[in-house]
Design a protein around this nucleic acid. Structure first.
Length: 284
DNA sequence: CATGCCCCCTGCACGC
DNA sequence: TGCGTGCAGGGGGCAT
C-alpha cells in the first residue's frame, strides 16, 4: 500500500481534505482537516501495519487500515503517474470516510466499511514515544530480524507458535494470513509451543532459520503480487491483489497439501479465537 | 509480566 | 425471497 501511495503522495500537497465521518477506530481530532490542508508530504514511510505520512508541519499522519480499510487512488487527468498506473473505477463510495485531494492530481479515498481503521496526527519529535508504535518488535524484512533474534523472542514463550508470531511485540506486521503461510513454508506446526523452536537457551537453529526465511519469503512474494485481497481489500488502483492465488494453506481447508511429496490435507483449527490453516502431516 | 478473551463494526455466505 | 447465524484481515483493554 505504501508503494502504491508513494508516487501520488510524496512531495505532494493536501489541496483538500474531507472527513465524511470521524468515528473511526478512534475519533479524528476536530482540527484534523486544518492540520492537514495545505501541508506537503515530505516522505511516506511504514512501521509494522502503520503508514507514516511525514508532513512539512512537523507532524506525522499515522494511518492503519484495520480489517477492511483500503485506499483508492484516481487521477484527475490521465491514469499514469511516475510510471504507475491508477484507474480506480470503484463506485462504492458509501464507506469513503476520508478523502484527500493532492496537488499531484490524485484523489485518495480512505474506504473502510467496518471502521476498524484509524488516523492519528503525532508530532514527529514524539513518534518514538507513540504508544501505538512503542512496543512493536523488529521489522521482519529488516536486517535486524534474523534467526537469532526470532529465537530470542520466542525463548521462554509459553504460548503457541501461531500466537507468538501474531504478537506484534515478537515481530511486527505479520497478520493471520501471513503467519499461516509462513508456518506452512517452514513446515512448523502452529500448535507447537513457541519456546520449542529455539534451543534451550534461546539460541538459533535450523528451525528458527527456516522460519525467518519463510517469513521474509512470504512477505516478499505478497508485496510483489500486490498484496492479499479478501473481499474489500484493494490495491490503490482499486484492483484486487493477486496474492490469494498463491495461498498455500489460508482458507484452503480440505485441499490437498501443496508441499511436494506430502499427501496431507489442509485443516482448519481455531487458536485464540482466530482461524488457523495448516497441514498436520508436514507441519511439525 | 504473560496470556487469552471480548469487543469495536459492517457485509457476506450459508442454511432454513 | 427473506431472515437468522456465524464468520472475517486487527488490536486495544481488561480479567485472570
Amino acid at each position: 500500500m505504501r508503494r502504491g501511495l508513494a508516487p501520488v503522495m510524496e512531495g505532494a500537497r493536501f489541496v483538500e481534505v474531507v472527513a465524511h465521518r470521524g468515528d473511526l477506530r478512534w475519533p479524528l481530532p476536530k482540527d484534523f482537516v486544518p492540520r492537514l490542508k495545505g501541508r506537503t508530504v515530505s516522505g511516506l514511510g511504514r512501521r509494522a501495519k502503520y503508514l507514516l505520512v511525514d508532513l512539512d508541519s512537523g507532524e506525522v499522519l499515522v494511518m492503519h487500515l484495520g480489517m477492511s480499510g483500503s485506499f483508492r487512488v484516481a487521477l484527475d487527468r490521465g491514469e499514469t503517474i511516475a510510471g504507475h498506473y491508477y484507474h480506480d473505477r470503484s463506485k462504492d463510495t458509501a464507506h469513503d470516510h476520508v478523502v484527500f485531494r493532492m496537488s499531484s492530481g490524485a484523489t485518495i479515498r480512505f474506504n473502510d466499511p467496518r471502521r476498524f481503521g484509524s488516523m492519528k496526527l503525532v508530532p514527529r519529535a514524539m513518534l518514538d514515544q507513540e504508544p501505538l508504535l512503542r512496543a512493536l518488535g523488529p521489522e521482519p524484512l529488516g536486517n535486524a530480524f534474523d534467526a537469532a533474534m526470532l529465537a530470542q523472542a520466542c525463548h521462554g514463550k509459553n504460548t503457541s507458535l501461531k500466537a507468538a508470531l501474531l504478537d506484534q511485540k515478537v515481530v511486527a506486521g505479520l497478520g493471520n494470513i501471513y503467519v499461516c503461510e509462513a508456518l506452512c513454508r517452514a513446515h512448523l506446526s502452529p500448535r507447537r509451543k513457541a519456546s520449542t523452536i529455539a534451543d534451550r537457551h534461546g539460541a538459533p537453529n535450523g528451525r528458527t532459520e527456516r522460519l525467518t526465511d519463510a517469513i521474509k519469503a512470504v512477505l516478499k512474494d505478497a508485496i510483489e503480487a500486490g498484496g492479499s485481497s479478501l473481499r474489500d481489500h484493494r490495491r490503490t488502483d482499486g484492483s484486487l491483489g493477486d496474492f490469494p492465488h498463491n495461498f498455500r494453506v489460508y482458507d484452503r481447508e480440505g485441499a490437498p497439501c501443496p508441499t511436494r511429496g506430502c499427501k496431507g490435507t489442509i485443516k482448519r483449527i481455531v487458536q485464540n479465537g482466530r482461524s488457523t490453516f495448516f497441514c498436520p502431516t508436514c507441519q511439525k
